[in-house]
Amino acid sequence: MKKGKGMKFVGDSRITAEKVRFIPKDYSEYPGKTEAFWPNFLLKEWLAGSVFLVGFLCLVLAHPAPLEGPADPTDAAYLPLPDWYFLFLYQLLKYKFASAQYFVIGALVMPGLAFGGLMLAPFLDKGKGRRPNKRPISVSLMLLGIIAVFWLTWEAASHVDWEAKAEENRPIPPGSTVEIDTEDPGYAVYENNCLSCHGGQLEGVAGPALIGMEYSVEEIKQIAVEGIGDMPPGQFNGTEEELQQLAEFIVATNEQAAEDH
């Protein structure tokens, strides 16, 4: 007897004395080839998972996680943006019908209806049919919702110059406590060529700060001669040796700065 009073237990526990053999579940409901989850299917799943993991790690290696400068509440010019999956809500709150006196509509009513509807979908869409063409209302509402979310996200994201924003907010350690080695032969070259725009402490004046960069010596040499972006070419005047000293000085200062924090 499997159930009820006739059951025998091991000692005073709830473990049945009789071992029941595993009988595979009957999937005759779905005719076709079923497969045991363990180990057959899991092995294949493991393969698919590995492929996914490799792709994921490539993404991670190619794009390091961004980090901006430390929070500065006095930076009034900063353009606040949420993470990308909240952009659609953020964009919604910019429209007239969803902001100021209608704020409640944009912040509560519309998202509330959308997400409430999503949550209660099984009770709103009670028909028997499962195929999309059997339930046109719920499917078209969902499609409408998806289009709205994609469109709002696009509207919010396309107006932002992401590269310029990242460039402006490079993570520079606070207080820039880097000791600038003014004795370095490279500093003299720096003083003559670059100081006017990049500042005596490499803190940036007309040009950006030169601390917190990841350029190599070669790249700095190239920038010094050819310029970059808004920096005009030909800023450097001197010998090849001086150029080398200059670039090495800037790279060494950056390495120093990275180590201090």
């Binding site: 595993f22 595979p24 579940k25 999937y27 779905y30 076709g32 080839k33 079923t34 497969e35 045991a36 989850f37 363990w38 299917f41 899991l42 698919a48």
Partner: peptide
Amino acid sequence: ADHEVPEHVNP
């Protein structure tokens, strides 16, 4: 772990 994976969900 000991269950069958029906055909229609198996890529």
